[in-house]
Design a protein around this nucleic acid. Structure first.
Length: 203
DNA sequence: AGTGCGATTGACT
DNA sequence: GTCAATCGCACTA
């Protein structure tokens, strides 16, 4: 491993919580690494949402389809889909293989490859590069071609530990849903300015 | 085969 | 604060 990725280490499958809500909390403070032929991009996860089994707002609620197949892989696989025909969304699959559930990654604090992210987003402001799920995917050049990928191995897209201590985690209702709107399944790093949503939701 | 609808974003009043 | 853009996919017929 070289300086270009700050020596990040992969997160083993065994280390990932299998349960969706636990995984959503666990991922706060972890690193998403994106490797392209041109650059290595990474950011610290500051906001997630859990979509556990049986959740009427989850994409797996009506059973497995070609689109949501990746949610049914074991923990630690990428589920990427296109929302509103405009924005790609990155999720981490959870629960044992055959059970459809996952965690949406909603915001990152950029750590490496910031110049490339600015190029990908056509935006300069550090705070706005990956604040929001669609922006995050755009910043890291994530699209459906990464759907189903293994996030526990080095490759085009993977998860890493960072050296920091455990962050202070806040909880709230999820954002942008029309169903199951009151469940406290959104998690975020308290006080982080890289968290999306109304500012009242990052206290 | 046709239709309706988002786990959003950015531009505008 | 409101609102349109945009398209893959699940659902209905």
């Amino acid at each position: 491993m070289g300086e270009h990725d700050r020596g990040y280490e992969t997160i083993s499958r065994a280390a990932l919580p299998v349960a969706t809500v636990e995984l959503a909390r666990y991922l706060i403070g972890k690193i998403v690494v994106r490797e392209t032929p041109d650059a290595v991009l990474s950011g610290r996860i500051v906001e997630t949402e859990a979509y556990p089994p049986g959740d009427a707002a989850g994409h797996a609620y009506r059973g497995e389809t070609p689109r949501n197949h990746a949610l049914f892989l074991g923990p630690g696989h990428a589920y990427v889909y296109l929302a509103y025909g405009v924005a790609s969304m990155l999720n981490v699959s959870s629960e044992p293989a055959g059970v459809g559930a996952g965690v949406l990654i909603r915001a990152l604090e950029p750590t490496c490859g910031i110049a490339s992210m600015q190029q990908n987003r056509q935006v300069e402001t550090l705070r706005d590069l990956a604040r929001g799920p669609g922006r995050l995917a755009a910043a890291l050049a994530i699209d459906r071609s990464l759907d189903g990928g293994d996030l526990c191995r080095r490759g085009p897209l993977w998860l890493a530990h960072d050296g920091q201590g455990d962050p202070d985690i806040g909880t709230s209702a999820r954002i942008g849903l029309s169903r199951e709107i009151d469940r406290p399944l959104r998690f975020y790093q308290r006080g982080s300015r890289f968290v999306s949503g109304p500012k009242a939701l990052n206290l």
